[in-house]
Amino acid sequence: MKKILLPLLFIFIFIFESIFVQSLPAEVFHGERILVPHFLIIAILFLTLYGDSKQGILYGLSFGLLFDVVYTEVLGIYLFLFPLIAYICAKIMRILQTNIVVVSIISLLGVALLELGVYEMNFLINKTDMSFSFYAQYRLLPTLILNLTFIILFSYPLKRLSEKYVAYLNKEK
């Protein structure tokens, strides 16, 4: 049971992102601001930073691929960015102390990196023609605020789960 709890949670978050976007009231959407949930990368980062970085990168790889196939139909962008950001954050954490505030800030940084990376890539392959100033004001900022709320609400349960999962994996060995 313990073994499949975390993968199940990840699958749930994966589906939940789409449900979230779909059931957000139309007014919030129809306003100019664009809110993008990046809950999956937050969960991956918590697993990387609190648990095992190898596990985190592995999860990043598999869920990145799933995200690309199911949601965007352009393979490669999330497949590349999820593990890369997990790796960068794991490197940053080596010089910082692991406490919940620092980890939260680093995951928010990870979300910002992901958003910027995806914007740049989509800009390069001509999937968007949004100007950077419009992007920063109406998309990046609201998105960061939304994900910060998510981090504040769920950082503690995510931390506990990741720690437990890794402790369980270690015991298995």
Binding site: I15, E17, S18, I19, F20, V21, Q22, I34, V36, P37, F67, V70, Y71, T72, E73, V74, V118, Y119, N122, K127, T128
Partner: peptide, 15 residues
């Protein structure tokens, strides 16, 4: 029935 929507909102796709 719509069962999903691309959450990253760059590619406007529905499932």
């Amino acid at each position: 029935t719509v069962i999903g929507r691309n959450p990253d909102r760059w590619h406007e796709l529905l499932i």
